[in-house]
Amino acid sequence: MAAEEQGEKKRKISPTATAYLVLYNVVLCAGWTSIGIVMVKHYLETKTYHGMYEAFEMPLKVFQTAAVLEIVHAIIGIVPSSVVLTAFQVFSRVFLLWGIIYSVPEVQDNIGVTMSVAAWTPTEMIRYAFYTFGLMNRLPYLITWCRYTFFIVLYPLGVMGEMSTFYASLPYIKESDIYTITLPNDYNISFNYSYFVIFIMVMYIPVFPRLYSHMIRQRKKIIGGQVVSKRD
């Protein structure tokens, strides 16, 4: 269905917008590739995940934060994706990066961070390559196949990494009371950051299976070919 919709909307955007999007996707693809290279290099040199975050900190901050532009792209309509869905996906990662990893330095060396970024990196390299080639109407089947196959492993790996990062951050958040507002104050509201993080973790439970099965269905439609889609 989504593929059909995309086909229908096969968008009439201006050449400038197309050029901009190609540029954006090429830069992001290159950016994530550089993160991948840094990770591999670090592992080959040290044979451990420790110190990994320091190695890719800068490019990760830049290229993950740049994904916020994707929400803008959806809002101004130069890409056909849903604004809500895009915002949701981008914010969950940006939140983990800035709200947890950056704000709670104690978790930076946790294996969850390496797991998350190890899952995000190939996902993003392929996704941005997919968009780039798609915009140029030269989409090799291999890239489509990778995009709709790798997630089977990478998506659960990423969720595991993200969950363990959240979990590892909780004791430090409780201890430091960061981003926590207590009563009494003039605004008559309170905010408990560790409850908020727990809430986010709980939200993964209904969201993950839905997104995963959505991706599986997409895979059947796009790679499984017409065999499945026209059952009756």
């Binding site: 009494p184 104050n185 008559n188 509201i189 309170s190």
Partner: peptide
């Protein structure tokens, strides 16, 4: 919850 809270702060 907030308006009736014992730590409620009255308007400035």
């Amino acid at each position: 919850y907030y308006v009736n809270h014992p730590l409620y702060t009255s308007p400035a």
